[in-house]
Design a protein around this nucleic acid. Structure first.
Lengths: 208, 208, 208, 208
DNA sequence: AATGAATGAGCGTTCATTCAT
DNA sequence: GATGAATGAACGCTCATTCAT
């Protein structure tokens, strides 16, 4: 019995190790400049496994996208608490973006770099990650709109895309790619949250 | 014009041809996957010139960044007309972003892909492009704030970063990388402009 | 039949299946380009068995040579009928060569390709196949010489080698390797048989 | 002036060196087992040149076939003297085959091994080498037939194919692949020449 | 100054063989 | 005995860079 459970686990662990190693190496060097040699070395297994498990280097990239994309989506519900006001809700979402983009910056580097160049990766990121995230934001906003806290004439779908875009720009482009500090980017998203919330809310918000 | 002015011009033309060719090839294939052979071929000159003029492939990338970054910045003042209301101003900026990111999508692909991976490219893009663009937006917003159309407690710097981020997300990530349509992205930025403008304006906007 | 006879038979069947599969794959791709993976797959058994049974890929090649070589030799006596005249005898031999080389073309491809390159395979083919075939032809010719139908000064050994060579050239090189048609090659061997028979016969042949 | 003639010659010499080196290595190891590394090393030039000059390993094989095939064809007329009798003519042809196959045994090994496996190589060898050789033999036989020394009812085309086949079998298969001695094979072709000549000649030959 | 032929390190990938199960 | 997952050496090939012309 023990050996039957060990082998599959071993295999799964190795696949995960390869995905993690590739995530790191792709992020450090870029997809093309990364070598399967270095990935295998860091994962502590044979180079040939990349080809057996993932059908080559490109397959490994797609496996990362699928694997991490899943985790990405899952983490929203768990990590962004619902808030009672629109301003707090948007701020919570943006602050979470700021931190999750930073934590997952390796994965972000690869997926942004490749999505910028390769349309098929763009499509995977769009459908596997962005769409899910926007759906989550829409649900949160809809709740406030139904409760009468967001003006009925506001298109929450478009606002959700906008919030997602602000989070991406601040959290990834500014903080990771442009190496701006956490403080600076936090200030920006707090201001953005406040302005946007004021712009879509029904009630007059109290001045800060 | 003597023959002595012809040779230098020839050289300058060759450098420009190489920059344009490299811009296209880098965008199509990515920086690493692009070959100096193809770049030289498209530019109609010898491969060795890349090394003589730009000290290699990497230097050519940096030359593109410098050359195109300059043009990028210049185009704002010329192309975005001043508006009388905050809403119109922000909308005009965002619509221009939408189109200029599309027109310059080759250059955008390279610079985003490389900035995501290489910190030194990130810094060049940040200082050479983003900072100038944000400066431009700040100037525009400040005018409205000084005229009393933007609340005095609003941090126009932060809002400028936000507007820039919305424009980047909509114009490049959504429209170029994710292949979303012009209509869809235009709707998003119009909604974003309206909401944001309402959120930072002093006067009560008329309901839509 | 007890269960103890079943396992050995199973094993023998598997060995035969591997030999047949390898014969086909080696012929299709050549020895080096063939993969043990494909051979095992076609034989319907595990790759590891090639190493257990035949001590590796090379051993499998030698096993094919031994196995098929045996069959090759056996088939002459059974399939080439004795004839009453030298001309008919030689013609019958050559026509049989033409067809048997074609039927066994998979095996021929491998053995010729490898014998051309590897001396040890050349020796196996020479002693295991060619020598037996020539022996068979010698026996046939000797019968006619003893019966006075072949001139006593003719060296039937040398003529047997010659007939074997004509059969090989027509049946394998021309028909299989050079893709010449059955009709064309049949005409050649009939002419050759007639000329050679006339050249070694004692009696004056009737003009055609 | 000197530099304009040197560079092209250098290049041609290198191409020839690669062809000669590849000819030797392919013959020693077989096409697949041969490595471009070893070929380049023996030719004394860089591996990349194989790909630049011949578009890869396969192209190098085809270049050998084209280059050597040409030489092969050229050498017949120059090296096989015309004879006054049919027997001498055929003997001269077969003896030349015996020696030329031996001298060119490296090339023969490759071309036979690959022609046996790869139809497209088979076609090249058939049209580039065998067809020319048979044409040459036909011309020689036709002379004798027109002079009345060969029976008018003999199909010299078929006999030419037969002679070519005997030469190939004796010279390459027996002498090179099967490592039979020069003496043994010479005896065989002399006997074959005599028998065949007797079989196609009009006049009664004197007994030996 | 400009060329492009030559270099050779290093790439992704393959596959015979091994060996734990 | 049989399996097939894992190994890793070695392959053909690419391409930035160099340098003789």
């Amino acid at each position: 019995m023990s050996h039957t459970t060990f082998a599959p686990k071993d295999k799964e662990q190795r696949q995960l190790a390869l995905i993690e190693a590739a995530n790191a190496v792709f992020a450090e060097r870029g997809y093309e400049a990364a070598t399967t040699r270095e990935i295998a070395e860091r994962a502590g297994c044979a180079e040939g496994l990349i080809h057996r498990y993932f059908a080559g280097k490109r397959g490994l990239l797609l496996a990362i996208l699928a694997h991490k994309g899943q985790h990405f989506a899952d983490s929203y519900c768990e990590n962004v608490p619902e808030k009672d006001t629109v301003g707090e809700e948007i701020e919570a979402i943006l602050l979470y973006e700021l931190d999750s983009k930073w934590e997952k910056r390796d994965f972000m580097r690869i997926s942004v770099a490749e999505a910028a160049i390769a349309p098929e990766v763009g499509a995977v990121v769009r459908d596997g990650i962005q769409a899910r995230q926007v759906e989550f934001i829409i649900a949160r906003l809809r709740r406030h709109q139904e409760a009468g806290r967001i003006r009925p004439d506001v298109d929450v779908d478009a606002i959700a895309f906008t919030i997602s875009g602000i989070g991406f720009s601040a959290g990834f482009m500014n903080r990771v790619a442009f190496a701006r500090g956490r403080k600076e980017t936090e200030h920006i998203v707090r201001q953005a949250a406040a302005a946007l919330a004021r712009g879509i809310s029904t009630e007059k918000e109290t001045p800060r």
